[in-house]
């Protein structure tokens, strides 16, 4: 406490005592959280890495095998499928979430009551849990009496079995995910649009700039930072696809919609090959870090140029 030290300045001994008591109470204030943090986050992080170097099973048997789990992963066709599915899913979701989120924010950034209502609608799905979202979407997607099947038959087409078709399962899950997650990107962009100084538009209007011109030279440059935040957040989130695939398809058909986290879940909590699952989770962690950091530094580099 700066003022406290200033008033105590005449006596150095008192200053020393004061800062010692400050240090003690500082540690007391942060200690409860730091203990939880160390025990429940840092310890499992390192013990997970340690586990990934072991052949470990449910019965507590554990044997150090070095990097063998990792070597085995790179030869495991199911894991490699899961990696490519995950990357494909990220590609199917992150760009649409960013672009649709931006589009919605631009369209709904005004004070009309319709816009307020639609903002509420587009964000409402985000507060639902994954199990409710999948319940809703299975009843939209199933070929036997689903909403889309009903629409297709009413125009004389035959229903499509989205979730049991190897080419459509992952895109269907991606569509469900976009429906579920679109609220956050929209809100982030809306918040950013509120920060763009109004007088920039006034000035542009005096110069007779058209609306596309204003969008391209005022709006988009001012929200670049938010676009980066949205992409990084969504990358991190969508790499972790789990519930939708676990509930809607169980990763099927024939692993066509098996993402990495579901692979980790199946290996770790159904086959109890814990060391192997830990190794897979470390690879996913690495991939997320690399993707987020590449994105971050690429955007930073572009900005500074």
């Amino acid at each position: 406490m700066d003022s406290c030290e200033q008033t105590a300045a005449p006596s150095t001994r008192r200053t020393w005592a004061a800062s010692k008591s400050e240090a003690r109470s500082g540690l007391l204030f942060v200690a409860p959280y730091l203990i939880v943090f160390a025990v429940l986050l840092i310890y499992p992080l390192f013990s997970g890495i340690w586990l990934s170097l072991h052949k470990a099973d449910l019965f507590g048997g554990s044997q150090f095998i070095g990097a063998q789990n990792y070597a085995r992963l790179f030869r495991d066709p199911v894991f490699l499928t899961a990696v490519s599915n995950t990357l494909y899913f990220v590609l199917l979701t992150v760009p649409p979430l960013t672009l649709i989120g931006l589009g919605l924010a631009l369209a709904l950034n005004n004070r009309s009551r319709w816009s307020a209502l639609l903002r509420g609608l587009f964000f409402s799905s985000s507060v639902l849990s994954v199990t409710i979202v999948t319940l809703i979407w299975r009843m939209v997607l199933i070929p036997d009496g689903g909403l889309i099947a009903n629409l297709l038959t009413s125009i004389g087409r035959s229903p499509v079995a989205f979730l049991s078709d190897a080419h459509l399962a992952l895109p269907a899950i991606a569509f469900t995910t976009i429906w579920w997650c679109i609220g956050l990107p929209m809100m982030l962009f809306l918040a950013a649009l509120q920060q763009v100084p109004r007088d920039l538009y006034e000035a542009a209007r005096l110069d007779n700039a058209g609306r596309w011109r204003m969008l391209a030279s005022i709006t988009l440059p001012s929200i670049r930072h938010t676009a980066l935040v949205v992409v990084v957040i969504e990358l991190i989130l969508q790499f972790q696809l789990f519930g939708q695939a676990q509930i809607m398809t169980l990763g099927g058909p024939n692993n066509a919609s098996l993402p990495m986290v579901l692979f980790i879940y199946q290996v770790g909590f159904q086959r109890w090959d814990i060391g192997y699952a830990a190794a897979a989770s470390e690879i996913l962690f690495g991939m997320i870090l690399i993707a987020a950091m590449t994105q971050y530094f690429a955007a930073r580099g572009r900005e500074s140029r």
Binding site: L40, Y43, P44, L51, I236, G268, S281
Partner: peptide, 13 residues
């Protein structure tokens, strides 16, 4: 730190 990189060890613990 994403959840899945700690969840296995945490489950063991």
């Amino acid at each position: 730190i994403p959840e899945q990189s700690v969840i296995i060890a945490r489950h063991q613990m």
